[in-house]
Design a protein around this nucleic acid. Structure first.
Lengths: 346, 346
DNA sequence: TGTTAGCACTCAGTCAAGCCGAGTGCTAAC
DNA sequence: GTTAGCACTCGGCTTGACTGAGTGCTAACA
């Protein structure tokens, strides 16, 4: 896979990819020699381009139309040619100025992060909040809504609030509920939801719970409340920016993409895959293995706190994405959000 | 405005509007005589069409292109020609089958309502939850997130959960907070948020609060918590369905529309206007007075419970909307949601 | 007097032909 | 190894002819 290219070929491939990124049009040999000063004639560039095409880095949509980088070409560009420099202090602080989180609850922060990332990059922003089960339990409250309906509210350590309605349990009074929540708040303090789930299963098997009525009720309530809880919260910002991309200007395609952004199911799968590894991840085109976002690339990074709550954020756009601009933005934002989760920044 | 039309003109106008709704193409005289059996020749229809055009109900995009209803034409159609029959029992129950709300929390119900409405109508669904200030207070809880940050959670009587982070108040212990929430839960029970706000202002002026420390703290905390709280929750479903409409297939237009659906600000204004009156409201095209959704119509209806919490839901699509199908859907859904708010249906 | 057949006219859309220009590959000279 | 030159390709644009859907007008008809 990691074919060797001599320096000239590398330079020309890089030039083609960058010109294509900014123009969305096939790049011709003359255009290259004009925009970049290689001291080479178009004819020589053509020779190199022919080689690159043979190696599979480029392809031409038709005989007389210049070349377009293939996915392989983009891969090579990203892996070997693209130099992402870290942001300078000034750039960082300029970026940081876009973010205002003071006094925001968790969902709003996630929303806002997506919005800003999208605004800075000019592509669609995605944020997946930490899986609920990976967050650390902070507090649970019960509110009786009606005779048979009970609202359960959990708060995670990071301030993420989840709530759920459960049916049944009409016999418990507000007083009982308070006792139960006090008990649970004491018992479960500092555990992750995943651990809480485990503990509940164990405790329910435990001998003691057969005799301690309150304990038993508490466990079965929280068990019901934790069942099939929506695991993922995904925030999408800047859907309309997809319309800036000329390559998406086909009715059916656009519809599929917008549907995908709307339904969030595919997005969760995509972001989950990004979560497998650390640092900035890049999925180019077909790598994503989702036909509905064919022609899209995804740049993601994880954010987390020390307690193991992991979320993922990123940017989705055309394969022809301005990676050199997007990567530092995603990288920086992920770090920033991690610090927010740790409450080092407010 | 309410011009008189003889029966023949009415029939022809109705036929044109309906043909145009289903085809999105200008309607010609021959097409009319073919699809509907008026026992009239195309030539006679043309005479009538010319009159209708002169009166402003129709217009022709160009000399040889059939006629398209104007907004005025649509108005007349809706006001005088369209007969919306109520749903039959069977239809109702068929519609009802699409909805499953059991065990859902309020936000999810709102989401789901939008989704189903959109799916049934094939247009984009909008739901605006009752203004927070119009909901009835049920319970308030405080959770300390960090030294200086406090999470406030309110639950409304309908089970709507709102939360907010407030800064400051580091001196209050968890015990203090419990006392305060107990106090507030007792004092504010059954009041609407608007009333709560009023009460807080009055009470803070009240002599007693100067001497009662806890009372004072409680009041100032809840005052901070209620300040500039996001009033409106809007749910949009089926954005991608906008792409089904051929008339929106222009880059800039589509972008504006999707942006509008995304930012929600304009939507709130629109839905607020719908809230002014009871029953199904219809805003046709320029009536909405928002250039960014030029060419769109909006069908809305309010839902509410007896305690005065009012929300609005509806459907947005092209002016050329299948009103006869949409209106009963919106109407029925609004009634259904009202009943859910009253907890007559679960 | 209202209805309709007939006719001339208009105009968007389609299709083919032709031109243009951007781009290529090959070859021969430097 | 580089490059100038040249023949060739092919998509995109323009042009013009044609088609068909539709109109308005007029004159004849019931």
């Amino acid at each position: 896979m990691a074919q060797e290219l001599n320096e000239r070929s590398q330079n020309i491939l890089e030039a083609i990819v960058e010109d294509y990124i900014s123009s969305a049009e096939p790049v011709g040999s003359r255009a290259i020699t004009k925009r970049h000063s290689f001291n080479l004639s178009p004819a020589s560039v053509r020779n190199v381009m022919a080689d690159l095409e043979e190696m599979g880095f480029l392809c031409s949509p038709h005989t007389s139309a210049g070349r377009v980088p293939t996915e392989k070409g983009f891969h090579y560009y990203i892996d070997s040619l693209l130099q992402v420099r870290d942001l300078s202090k000034e750039e960082e602080s300029r970026l940081r100025k876009n973010y205002r989180f003071k006094g925001m609850k968790m969902e709003d922060i996630m929303q806002e992060v997506g919005r800003v990332m999208s605004g800075l990059s000019n592509y669609t922003g995605l944020v997946m909040a930490p899986k609920f089960s990976s967050t650390v339990f902070r507090q649970i409250e019960f509110v009786r809504l009606s005779h048979s309906r009970l609202l359960v509210i959990y708060v995670s350590e990071t301030g993420l609030v989840q709530n759920k309605v459960i049916e049944g349990a009409p016999e418990l009074s507000q007083h009982d509920l308070e006792q139960i929540s006090n008990y649970l708040n004491r018992e479960l303090n500092g555990m992750s939801i995943a651990e809480v789930r485990e503990k509940i299963v164990q405790d329910l098997r435990d001998e003691r719970s057969r005799y301690d009525q309150m304990r038993k009720q508490a466990l079965s309530l929280s068990s019901a409340a934790l069942q099939d809880e929506a695991e993922n919260l995904v925030f999408v910002s800047g859907t309309s920016l997809m319309l800036n991309q000329p390559e998406f200007y086909a009715p059916e395609r656009l519809k599929r993409i917008i549907q995908t952004l709307e339904s969030k199911k595919t997005l969760i799968e995509l972001l989950d895959r990004g979560q497998a590894a650390d640092g900035v991840q890049i999925f180019i085109g077909s790598q994503s293995q989702h036909a509905e976002i064919e022609g899209c690339s995804l740049v993601t990074s994880n954010f987390s706190n020390k307690k193991g709550a992991i979320g993922t954020l990123g940017v989705i756009g055309p394969v022809r994405m301005a990676y050199s601009k997007v990567i530092p933005i995603v990288d920086f934002t992920a770090q920033l959000v991690s610090r927010i989760l740790e409450r080092e920044v407010e």
